[in-house]
């Protein structure tokens, strides 16, 4: 075995080690991120991963590929006559002068020269993949874990109802045929807590089993977030006692548990259980008993 090939084997081994190191540090970076992150460690691992990758590629190109030198003729710009060029090139190619690479090397041969080391190529792909995966991890920082947040709103047991202007709502102040947008006290304007308070006549309401005491004196509250695409269900038609969503025209029957009766929505608007506190203000008996708004995968 000649010296050159022993040198090459040694370089190959070093490159392989570097690529493996690059992959390991990249994965280490991912682990660092996943376990909470640490600035110095992140910088060190990223630097090591990129550095070993860079060294491996440079070493590969420097020691394992045909070294040259290759010669290309310089042409004075003004002399480059486009009319003549293709012809001259044809001539060059025909006479073999175009291929100045020793041994007649071409592009495909360059590819072959790289491909002659399949093990290193595999390592390279692996290391690049690991770096790519590690680079994806910071995407996780873009948003919090959804967790159970979609199942909860700010409504709590005993939370008093307030209007958009922050006024507490007294039981009975709403006349029959009136509607009011309410929020839990201290959470005015919260998108998922917005609730419609409607006064219907008690006899009309078709109360669902288990919801007998949810609507004191015909004051019934439903989530204002459409179960279709999440728009505020803002249109209350008193005569038919129906709620219409202005975005996609889903129609909900207020009398019948806000059941969808027309349009693209398929679920009733969740009902908020109401009560009256000792001071005569309307309060919630608790949070909604289901996730409000449009559907999502985790919703049972």
């Amino acid at each position: 075995m000649s010296d050159t090939s022993r040198d090459e084997r040694r370089t190959e081994r070093a490159i392989a080690v570097a690529l493996v190191l690059s992959a390991i540090t990249a994965l280490g970076l991912a682990v660092t991120y996943a376990t909470g992150g640490q600035v110095q460690l992140e910088g060190f691992l990223l630097g090591l991963s990129l550095g070993t990758m860079g060294w491996a590629l440079c070493a590969w190109g420097k020691h394992l590929l045909p070294p040259g030198p290759f010669v290309q003729q310089r042409q004075h710009p003004a002399e480059a006559d486009p009319e003549q060029e293709p012809v001259s090139r044809l001539v060059d190619e025909a006479t073999g002068e175009a291929s100045t690479l020793p041994g007649g090397g071409t592009d495909t041969e360059g590819l072959d020269a790289v491909g002659r080391r399949p093990f290193l190529v595999k390592l390279l792909v692996g290391a690049a993949g690991a770096l790519g995966v590690a680079a994806l991890f910071p995407i996780r920082s873009l948003g919090p874990d959804p967790g159970r947040t979609l199942f909860r709103t700010s409504w709590r047991k005993g939370a008093r109802l307030v209007t958009e202007e922050g006024r507490l709502v007294r039981a009975g102040e709403l006349e029959v045929g009136s509607v009011l947008t309410v929020f839990p006290e201290g959470h005015i304007g919260e998108a998922d807590a917005q609730t419609l308070l409607i006064r219907a006549t008690e006899d009309d309401l078709r109360t669902r089993p288990g919801r007998e005491d949810w609507a004191p004196r015909g004051q019934v509250a439903y989530s204002k977030v459409c179960t279709h695409a999440g728009c505020p269900v803002g249109l209350y038609q008193v005569e038919s006692r129906r709620l219409l969503c202005p975005c996609h025209q889903s129609l909900f029957d207020v009398i019948d548990g806000a059941r969808p009766v027309f349009g693209p929505a398929s679920r009733s608007l969740p009902q908020l259980a109401l009560d009256v506190d000792d001071d005569g203000y309307l309060i919630a008996r608790g949070d909604y008993d289901e996730a409000i708004g449009p559907g999502f995968w985790e919703r049972p």
Partner: peptide
Amino acid sequence: TWVAYLLFGGEF
């Protein structure tokens, strides 16, 4: 839910 949260940076 993840797509929505990562895109918007949390609950709407």
